[in-house]
Amino acid sequence: MTEDQTYGGDEPVRTGVPAVDAVLDDVDTAADLPVDEQVAVFERAHERLRRALDGQADEPS
């Protein structure tokens, strides 16, 4: 864990990987959505994370 990562606090966790951190930001906003809209956010997050792991993170979503 790096110095700027905090679990259970108010600060979001950062990985240092811009593509992954952008997905985490989107997932953080899902908590403010109705449950039926959260599914789409998580599905997009899953796809974006898969692309990031495949080295294709800079392609548009």
Rank of each mutant, 00 (worst) to 15 (best):
Q5L: 10
A57H: 11
V39D: 02
V23L: 12
L33V: 04
A57L: 15
D58V: 01
A19M: 11
Q5A: 08
T6Q: 11
D21W: 07
V27M: 10
G55A: 03
A30L: 08
P12Y: 15
E59V: 06
A40P: 08
R44G: 11
V20E: 08
G8D: 10
T15Q: 04
A19H: 11
D54H: 06
D54Q: 13
D10H: 05
L33Y: 00
G9P: 03
T2D: 02
E37V: 08
E11Y: 15
D28C: 00
P18V: 10
Y7N: 09
D32A: 03
E59W: 15
G55I: 05
V20T: 11
R48E: 12
R44M: 12
D32C: 05
P60S: 14
T29A: 02
D10V: 13
A52F: 10
V35M: 10
A45K: 02
E59S: 01
R51P: 01
S61R: 13
E47F: 00
A57R: 03
R14W: 15
T15I: 13
E59Y: 03
F42P: 01
E11A: 10
T2V: 15
E43T: 14
H46Y: 02
L33I: 00
T2M: 15
P60N: 00
T2F: 07
A45T: 11
V41S: 01
R14T: 12
D25A: 08
D28H: 02
V35G: 01
H46Q: 13
V27F: 09
R14I: 07
A52C: 13
E11W: 04
L33P: 03
R51S: 00
G16Q: 14
D36N: 08
R44E: 04
L24S: 14
V17I: 14
D21T: 08
V17T: 15
T15F: 07
L49N: 01
E59M: 00
L49W: 00
G55H: 04
A22N: 11
L24K: 10
R44D: 09
L49Q: 13
A45E: 04
G16C: 08
T6H: 13
Q5E: 12
D4S: 15
D26S: 02
V13D: 07
E47T: 06
A22H: 05
E37R: 08
A57P: 08
E3H: 14
V39P: 05
P60T: 07
E47V: 05
L53E: 11
D36A: 13
D28T: 04
L24C: 06
T2P: 11
D58A: 01
D32H: 08
V23T: 01
D32S: 05
G55C: 07
V13W: 06
